[in-house]
Amino acid sequence: MLRLRVNGETYETLTESNETLLEILRERLGLTGTKHGCELGECGACTVLLDGTPVLACLVLPDQIDDAEVTTVEGLADGSVLHPLQEAFMALGASQCGYCTAGMLLSAKALLDEQPDPTREEIRAALAGNVCRCTGYASIVDAVALAAKAPKGAR
């Protein structure tokens, strides 16, 4: 029995030892907001935060997450109030098909938590592990820069 906290809620679930966090989230917990584009650690679509650090959920195994705090895209908004990153992604069209969005948002959140006022180069570098085929990254980088300007307390 695996015990983990996801977005502030505690879950207990059966797992196989070779089951990935991605599979646990999507298939055991029904949290399908986290996506997959390769399941080999190559695309970034499955990025979630593990105790605040971005990880590729498709590479994380149960023994790494026992009692850990996982943040997924479903946990970004505060109730009905969206996170500034979500607001900025919407406003600037940084989510087109939306398939990379969950991973992008969490990589960006980890960056802003660490570095509240990043340069564009820092933003580009922080997102370099997340592949997006729709946007050309321009609106995504703009959105992260915009979210960084949100009044403190909004995130």
Binding site: L31, T32, G33, T34, T72, V73, E74, L76, A77, L82, L85, Q86, F89, M90, S95, G98, T101, A102, L105
Partner: peptide, 8 residues
């Protein structure tokens, strides 16, 4: 459909 896309 932006809200659905950014909230998963």
């Amino acid at each position: 459909d932006a809200v659905s896309k950014v909230t998963g």
